[in-house]
Computed example of a mutant assay.
Amino acid sequence: MRRFFTPGWLGLHALAIVLCAAFLGFGWWQYDRAQAGNDRSWAYTFEWPIFSIFVIVMWIKMMRDELSGDETRQAPKVIEEPAAAAVKRELIRQHEAEDPSLAAYNRYLARLNAESRG
């Protein structure tokens, strides 16, 4: 529960409270306008509280995701067997030996991959 009192989460809590209050206030304002004879305001009278409910639902969902996030984080699955990977590396090495431009392109791709992960 301590994680919900970090500066980032406190900002999200404040934002959710401000948005809910503002949306309910807008709904009340539209209700007053509808009572004064503005027929279009009746739709907004119900729309703004729905926005407020949406904020609450998303706020709760974010907190639930944060709580369950620790258990769902796992190591990535191995896509292929180590033996199959070794065979593929050997085939790639043989093809690169035959075509130097392919070898240069594969080194370029490997460098881009390493930079994107780092």
Rank of each mutant, 00 (worst) to 15 (best):
S116F: 14
R2H: 08
D39N: 14
P76T: 00
R73M: 11
S101D: 11
E115M: 14
S68Q: 01
K88Q: 12
E81A: 15
F51M: 13
L67G: 14
Q74G: 00
A103C: 06
F51Q: 13
L102W: 04
G8A: 14
E98W: 02
E81F: 03
I92Y: 07
L24H: 05
R117Y: 06
P82Q: 00
K77D: 09
H13N: 08
I79H: 06
Q35S: 12
E90V: 00
G8W: 05
A103F: 08
A36M: 07
P49Q: 06
P100G: 03
N113F: 11
D99P: 06
F4R: 05
R117S: 03
D99S: 09
E47K: 10
M62V: 08
Q35M: 14
L19V: 07
L19Q: 09
L19G: 02
K77G: 13
A84D: 05
F51K: 13
L67Q: 04
M1I: 06
K61H: 09
W29I: 04
F5Y: 07
V57D: 04
R2K: 09
A110Y: 02
E90I: 02
L109W: 08
A43V: 07
N113E: 10
P76N: 13
L91M: 13
P82A: 07
D32A: 14
V55T: 08
G11N: 06
W29H: 04
A16V: 01
A43F: 14
A34N: 03
Y44N: 11
Y105F: 11
M58F: 14
A43T: 06
Q94R: 13
I60A: 12
M1E: 10
D99E: 10
F26Q: 11
L109D: 03
W42L: 12
Q94W: 07
G37C: 01
V55N: 06
L91K: 10
R2C: 03
D39A: 15
A21W: 01
R117M: 08
V18K: 14
A21P: 02
R93K: 14
A85G: 04
G11T: 05
F54R: 10
R89G: 00
L12S: 07
R111G: 01
H95V: 02
G69D: 15
A22G: 07
K77P: 03
W9R: 07
N106M: 13
A86P: 01
E47H: 09
A85T: 12
E90Y: 02
K88E: 09
L12I: 09
G37V: 04
N106A: 10
F5I: 02
P49L: 11
W48E: 05
P49N: 06
F51T: 00
A104R: 15
L91N: 14
M63K: 11
A85L: 13
